[in-house]
Design a protein around this nucleic acid. Sequence first.
DNA 1: CCCAATAATGTAACTGTTTACATTCTCAAT
DNA 2: ATTGAGAATGTAAACAGTTACATTATTGGG
Lengths: 351, 351
Amino acid sequence: MSTIRDVAKIAGVSIATVSRVINFPEKVGIETRKRVFRAMEVCRYKYNALARGFATKRSHTFGLIVPTITNPIFAESTRGIQDFANEQGYQVILGNSDYQYEKEAKMVEVLRERQVEGLIITTTNLKGETLKSLLDDRFPFVLLYSTVRRGPISAVGVDNFLGGYRATEHLIHFHHRRIAMLAGAFNCSDRSFHRWHGYKRCLKDNHIPYDPDLVLKTEYSLARGREGVKSLVSFKNPPTAIFCSNDFLALGAMAGAREAGISLPQDLSIVGFDDMQIASSVTPALTTIRQPAYEMGELGAKILLHHIGNKVYKPVHKILATRLVIRESTTVVRTMKKEFYKTKAMSVHGA
Amino acid sequence: MSTIRDVAKIAGVSIATVSRVINFPEKVGIETRKRVFRAMEVCRYKYNALARGFATKRSHTFGLIVPTITNPIFAESTRGIQDFANEQGYQVILGNSDYQYEKEAKMVEVLRERQVEGLIITTTNLKGETLKSLLDDRFPFVLLYSTVRRGPISAVGVDNFLGGYRATEHLIHFHHRRIAMLAGAFNCSDRSFHRWHGYKRCLKDNHIPYDPDLVLKTEYSLARGREGVKSLVSFKNPPTAIFCSNDFLALGAMAGAREAGISLPQDLSIVGFDDMQIASSVTPALTTIRQPAYEMGELGAKILLHHIGNKVYKPVHKILATRLVIRESTTVVRTMKKEFYKTKAMSVHGA
DNA sequence: CCCAATAATGTAACTGTTTACATTCTCAAT
DNA sequence: ATTGAGAATGTAAACAGTTACATTATTGGG
């Protein structure tokens, strides 16, 4: 509507003075300042932050790309980012990639055109091309939920390998030996891959043979979790426990198990990954590997802001601690005990 | 980095021509066009959408305010908004109000300074002041999850009264007579208020006396749901069913009931409101009133875009249909039956 | 009373596009 | 050859701020 020039005219000062009362009021004489404020009232002046961004080449905007804001774990980290960003006078433009490379790359482009000052990319399968151009241009960005621990790209994440290991270990402590995994999709990020490695390694360390039939690579969703258990449970020799690569899968698996008439956790132990808010309130409450999502977002935003502020670019890598939260969806093996003894007897018999 | 002028210089054309190849390539001779594209490659030209926005006074940006993106139901409608907006070349800046008036008002101001072309405000307790200034300025905005059905403000929402009525009615069909309500907070939006009215009315229509002790006005959260049941259940004459004003409350109530040793749904029926994604996958699966959140977001964005495009402002009000989704968390009253017969016997005795 | 330092204010260029309008060019119809 | 229409291209102003630099006013010390 009305601009700085209108205000200047009404107040009888120059536009520079108006600009100063907006940005450095103390640099302007008290009387003039008052006059300017009054003039602003008069013409209902509204500051134009976009014009300012244009003039200063600072948009005070972050771009944020998540697979889908619909997943509570990403909503959580998004809050962490927003809260920090807003506090620092930044706003965030949010885009969804749906785990698709093309959408992600497109979004990066769109956001850069919009002159966001930096990008937070949450779990990525960006091809080298996009990443390289970001790097070449020294464009500030940080990866969230990332597994990278070195190299030129800043990243914050958790130790997915360790998380997978701990989850599996917990199950083994409860005497499970036949442990399946709903592993997520390997093509869309390497987090699921690392969790799977942790699982495999833990099996190995405990002298449990790895059975590839027990790991299902599926997309992260309730539906896939539900289907997953059903197929697992129909095996001649079904698992007594499942490690799910995220909570959606775990929650879906619980629902599926129930539909299949399996009682939880007695007949099937389930552990998830993420610890989304609802995990503690379902029945049975979900045992899971907690990721500090909010903190991760907050930290990512902090790092990004730091990159924006400093011309020398020094990548930083942060690994946040996960935590095994033991609740009710896991218990010591039961059905398998029978099996176990039976097998033993048979092997004695056979010897 | 490099601007349209650099490109122009390299290609040996005027800046207007470069601008034209970007916006109306067909208006430029094929040869020149090629030369310009080549020049862009050479200097790695990047389009500056912010400068364009400044020049055209169109930011191609929506502002979106939600209580918190952390609530899956708002994440759902946010996706609806984003998907439509992106498709139309718009981006969305997201802000959280945490159900607080001040934050909401602040966010409106910040977003307007940023020259968003319109605002989608999702459930608001905006005071007249802010709303009035939006209206006075003819600033395009639409309310989501709104209860307003007439007047100068565009709004889309559901019939909360009817939803509350239906939920209660469902419980009554199952012979519940002592029905509590976890009602949400009345000060932060009138949706909970309407749901409560639906509940009251349904009680009345069925000749069940309204007992104010049975309605707890609490904030929308798992924790409050959990606390809520516990207090309800400790009554000398506890309810046999609870209608919860949203799914968080309902899910929290289920967890709380379980902790109190109550078996669901036999001893306590629970119905929620929203139908968030997880509602169908918990145990027992939650009976709830479904709101079409994604569609609501999409529709809201459509209406907003329409307002932006048309200078004459004609407010529109849309009420989307809710649906009672019956699952497993509600069943015919059991414990109450005893009570019921006993009471009957007594009354006979007393007669 | 003068000078220098400092505070207050003004001038004008700059940011990267778009766009109305002007100019030039091409070509077909006269 | 002349004209006029239409296509291709160029010129320059506008958008709403910021900011380096210049100018003017004020003040305190000599």
